[in-house]
């Protein structure tokens, strides 16, 4: 669903419209109040045992719906050739778990090369956004210069433009640069996401003015203000946009599908669809391929989720 542009990265969809008013404190306080005292039965204290049981029961139902399809795929990828994957009495636990399918899928398509290709694109996109969006966000939020208003309006107006609308012209631009059918061509358009610039601007704006007024009087240059006052105060937003830039680049499909022709240059998503198209016979191999694409991203997200959820509470997402 996520990414206003489809092009590699930017994470545009991943985080919706920026919140124009910095209101970190309000959100955080609100959330904390909510935690301790919302929705108790009768009184507003801790949930009663009945309510707790009901809550956990519902949570487990939703958990099953969200997680079982992934587990089924994982289980399929671990089943050996002798085990019936089509059985009408499905078994979630492989009788003789094996990693053979992961080796075999690499014989069918160069899946590890594809993974490296995806990683290459994602690294460019993350680096570009971390630097480009931070610098521009800071300038737009804290410095005065001619044309700043016009730039801001242009940045904002890109938000109503779905990436698919310009994808054909985007491809022509990349092609005229001689970057058609290259991984750099896949990475480039998303290397600075317009939404990320706006999100970083919002984060820099939330820093109290007094903090750098003193620095200005002391003669600090904009660079010094950015490094010593700006950056330490926007780490939350910066981690949110980089996490999403990585995820969006890794997950992107339509844009690399249009840019790339040569099967040796495919990214994982394009390569997996290619595998699906040429090799429908063995679901175990496709399952192994999907897990190679899915596991890194889920491990990355699980290990960084506290930064993400903190970012959410700090108002990275419009409420």
């Amino acid at each position: 669903m996520s990414d206003m542009t489809v092009q590699a990265g930017a994470g545009r969809d991943a985080v919706p419209a920026p919140d124009p008013s910095p209101r970190d404190d309000r959100v955080r306080r609100g959330a904390r109040r909510g935690e301790s005292a919302r929705r108790g039965r009768g009184g507003f204290g801790a949930p009663g045992p009945g309510e707790l049981v009901l809550r956990y029961a519902l949570l487990l139902v939703v958990l099953a719906i969200t997680v079982l399809p992934f587990l089924w795929q994982l289980s399929t990828s671990l089943k050996g050739p002798m085990e019936d994957v089509f059985s009408r009495t499905p078994s979630f636990v492989p009788s003789q778990p094996t990693l053979d399918n992961y080796a075999k899928v690499a014989e069918t398509i160069p899946v590890w090369t594809y993974a490296l290709n995806s990683l290459f694109v994602a690294v460019i996109v993350v680096g570009g956004n971390a630097i480009g969006a931070t610098l521009a966000g800071f300038a737009l939020a804290r410095l005065e210069f001619r044309g700043a208003k016009l730039l801001l309006v242009l940045f904002l107006s890109t938000l109503v433009l779905p990436g698919e609308v310009t994808i054909i012209s985007q491809f022509l631009t990349i092609r005229s640069m001689g970057l058609a059918d290259t991984l750099v061509g896949v990475a480039l358009p998303g290397a600075i996401g317009m939404l990320n610039v706006l999100l970083m601007r919002t984060a820099f704006q939330a820093i109290p003015k007094e903090m750098d007024e003193a620095a200005v009087i002391d003669g600090a240059t904009p660079w010094q203000r950015l490094i010593h006052i700006g950056l330490p105060n926007v780490r939350g937003m910066l981690s949110v946009i980089t996490i999403f830039a990585f995820i969006a680049a890794w997950d992107d499909f339509l844009w690399p599908l249009i840019v790339l022709n040569d099967p040796s240059k495919f990214t994982l998503t394009v390569g997996l669809q290619y595998l699906n198209g040429t090799f429908t016979a063995n679901p175990r191999l496709i399952a192994a391929g999907t897990m190679i694409s899915f596991l890194p991203i889920v491990i990355l997200f699980a290990s960084l989720q506290r930064y993400f959820f903190r970012g959410v509470e700090e108002g990275a997402i419009k409420g």
Binding site: P69, F70, Q73, D252, T290, I297
Partner: peptide, 18 residues
């Protein structure tokens, strides 16, 4: 609950095709 969001649409669609 957020896991399906971070998975790529291609991965999700392949899982559901199966």
């Amino acid at each position: 609950f957020y896991t399906p969001v971070v998975a790529s649409a291609v991965v999700v669609a392949l899982i559901w095709s199966w």
